[in-house]
Amino acid sequence: MTLDRLKQHFPWVTLVVLILIVGAMDPNFLRPQNLVELAGDIAPLFIMALGMTLAIYIGGIDLSAQSVANMTTVLATITLPLFGVFSALVVIAVGFLFGAVSGLVTTRLKVPSFIATLAVGGIALSVGQFASGQRALYMDAGQRDRAFGWMLGSTAGIPHELVLSLVLLAFAWFIQNRMKAGRILKAVGAGELAAVASGLRVDRYKILAFALSGMFAAIAGLLFSVKLSGGSPTLAEGFLLPAIVAVLVGGTPLTGGVGGVLNTLIGAMIVAVVRASMLYLDIPATSQQIFFGIVLIVAIALTIDRSKMRIVK
């Protein structure tokens, strides 16, 4: 019981401890401006992790998020000259659709989500490759600024990316905590069979969770491509692992039902601080995935609810 209570506080304690450790190595790190910028930098990853949270919250996972984001960078760059700011709606809809397909495959064909989303991710990757002709594409700077300039820059020292992230967090939090859909997602994660036996249309809401995950991945991809002013089918490479890590170290276990989007905020900040600390420690970016891989395994091993997973294959 006490251990369970401690577990709840583990994420933010970890975050504070990490910030203090890095701060001890370099006091400049603790400057508010630096911390705010750090938070802003992680925005695309955080947005992807928000969507991922919904998939994990119901006890599933979305391995297609990175590929959907990749595809989105390409589609956003291609559609920008055609639709201007409305290209955002197009790519978000496409992301939602890809997520919904994952959800349909999972619920209707009973394919576990890790494989369904892996497959749908493969499709998304190919669409991105095909649409881009396997090249890096660039946005016209003028068009980009007219349509999406508001995403970048900062007001009163607060990066707009950070504001956008927090608005999306509020949106996701409202769905999760105040809407019927969120309640049902929680029930599915905590006890799907009881949800079915209460007469809930569980499948629809599972599809919704994956669709929203796809949508958030698309928003993450859009922001990233605006930031880098272009698109390529490998632009968001290296996002998936940290996004999953952010969800899990934030305190939403792979078995679902507890945690949620606020936890993912903490988790994403932990990831940001860890990344920053690697810069201070001179660890090359290419080795970061080793670290995230290890953290992922430890985080899963510590947080998974074994009573729900008697048999692991």
Binding site: R178, M179, K180, A181, R183, I184, K186, A187, A190, G191, L193, A194, A195, V196, A197, S198, G199, L200, G257, V258
Partner: peptide
């Protein structure tokens, strides 16, 4: 397993089968 959702509160469990009565425009 099928009766209650453990991890959810008493009130969340009681309205699980009748959420529509407590929902307006999707908001509980």
């Amino acid at each position: 397993i099928e009766g209650i959702v453990s991890g959810m509160s008493v009130f969340e469990n009681m309205t699980l089968s009748q959420m529509d009565k407590y929902t307006r425009a999707g908001v509980l």
